[in-house]
Design a protein around this nucleic acid. Structure first.
Lengths: 140, 140
DNA sequence: TGAAACTAGTTTCCAAGTCAAATAAATTGA
DNA sequence: TCAATTTATTTGACTTGGAAACTAGTTTCA
């Protein structure tokens, strides 16, 4: 058994939380000037990705709980970024759609997110990043 | 340039958030029966690790903001898990100490956390975990 | 059919988090 | 020495997030 493990800081949940904390902090600092939160950016990217999404699917992909998404979307509607439409097939479902303002703003925001990603990529080599991505994917 | 990157789900910030979300969910589900949150567990482990810590140092290591820590500690004091003591050298500082109840409870909780870690470890091989730990550490 | 069971999304309510200001102790330097 | 500044922590007003309850639409099957 590999040594270590005396220190609780070796727990995967700890290093993961630490990395997540630091990365979301710098990303959300950068998004602050757009007046938007990381989750809202994720919602917009999800919507832009093509298929029509219901609130439920969106909650899964944007990594937020349904009640939180509901409230987030309220604000985004108010800001004119998205709009709700009752789904044709199943009237309980809501399809969320990006407005053209939403798409425009998303593209601007994406520039900043990509820039932030460059910073991040500088900390690790290409292959580590790939390994990291794959390892993390297995944990989700 | 490696293909991919069409999908925003490849952003490191996304995979990291997804993994963090899923892992903290299962861990906090498990801690629920102890009536404790992940952050409180981290605080207790920090305190148990030996050196006397001030609120500031604790906030850093337990990955919570100072005001949040202050309030979390209020509750933990109420629950009899820790107690505050004004530091001798600098009277602005507070040293937080585990009570013996706190230590006892921490040891019980640690069993569950370790069990959860076993589950996690089963998803990845030993070397991936090491790589992951190292890569994440660079990001923090 | 149509009542019962189920599902999607929203709302409510409360616990917990944030930001900025307040407090209090330590340090600086005129 | 003591006012001004800096630092550590807490407080207070406000916001956010989550669990559970609620509403409304859909499916099941007797």
């Amino acid at each position: 058994m590999s040594a270590q493990k005396k220190h609780f800081e070796n727990h995967l949940s700890y290093v993961l939380a630490a990395a997540h904390r630091s990365i979301s902090k710098s990303l959300s600092d950068r998004l602050r000037k757009h007046g938007i939160k990381i989750e809202a950016w994720r919602v917009m990217e999800c919507l832009d990705a093509g298929e029509r999404l219901t609130m439920g699917q969106l909650a899964d992909r944007a990594l937020v709980n349904p009640p939180t998404l509901s409230k987030l979307v309220d604000r985004m509607v108010l800001d004119g970024l998205v709009h709700r439409r009752v789904a044709d097939e199943d009237h309980r479902q809501i399809n969320l759609l990006l407005t053209s303002l939403g798409r425009m703003r998303m593209i601007q925001i994406r520039e900043d997110v990509d820039a932030e990603d460059q910073n991040l990529a500088a900390l690790l080599d290409e292959t580590s990043i790939d390994l990291l991505r794959k390892a993390l994917a297995k944990l989700s």
